[in-house]
Amino acid sequence: MSLGTPAHAGRIRGMWDFYLTVMRTAVVEQFQYRAANYAYMIGMVAEPVIYLVVWSTVAEAQGGEVAGFTPGDFAAYYIVWTLVRNMNIVFTPYGWEQRIREGHLSGMLLRPVHPLHYDIAYFAGWKVVAIVLWVPIAVVLSIGFRPTFDVSVLDAAAFFFAIWGAYLIRTLFLWLLGMITFWTTRVSALYELYFTAELLLSGRLVPLVLMPAWVLVFADVLPFRWTFGFPIEVLAADLSPAEVGQGLAMQALWIAVGAVLVAVVWRFAIRRYSAVGN
């Protein structure tokens, strides 16, 4: 099938419709559970507030700044963090066990689209609800902690792409991790290890410049920093246009790597699946 044929255009339109419908369903479904969504978000906001308080205290003890960060800079970093963290919520690798054991996957396989598209679309729709609920939290945090922002229009535009890039990278890599469930169900220890590495090497815990130099060597060759640290820094730190461009390019690279890996592993994984359920 070559590009531009009617069949190809039809496929794209079909995909577009599929994404829109799934996203709309997610919005309606998740908006019903706004109270639960909110409580979940408050539990989540505790994490950056703790980091923020600790590092602001350190900055003040060091005469107002640590590694170039003032308390206001930390506030900006961790407030943007809350939005990036929301964008980073994707289908959990722990969910695969249920998907396989209860046979949900059988239903997904009957559809003419790859199940990955369903997850990308559904969680993207959920983001709409998450962002609406997030705005008041950001306002309260801004009043309480007085962030210092210096955002240009270009930064804001790059930020838009960076958070969706982060979303795709994390979706793909957690899919890879989750697919291990096709081979073994004793996965929780491995997942914990992965999430610990992510916490330390992504900029989720602290801005990466505060990390020792040898840690950054690892951070540079792993995908983690492009899902947390980079999008946050686009908005909250002073990156040059060149750095922003390079970061977006790195995100594109990791999306490509993730997509290829998912495609390959999926082919082997799905052969291990023996349909269960109805």
Partner: peptide
Amino acid sequence: RMEFIVELFDGVYQAGRWPVTI
């Protein structure tokens, strides 16, 4: 629907890792 209570408590409990005076 109260299952979120664990996430909520675990999140807030993390604050206790540091002395409350900070």
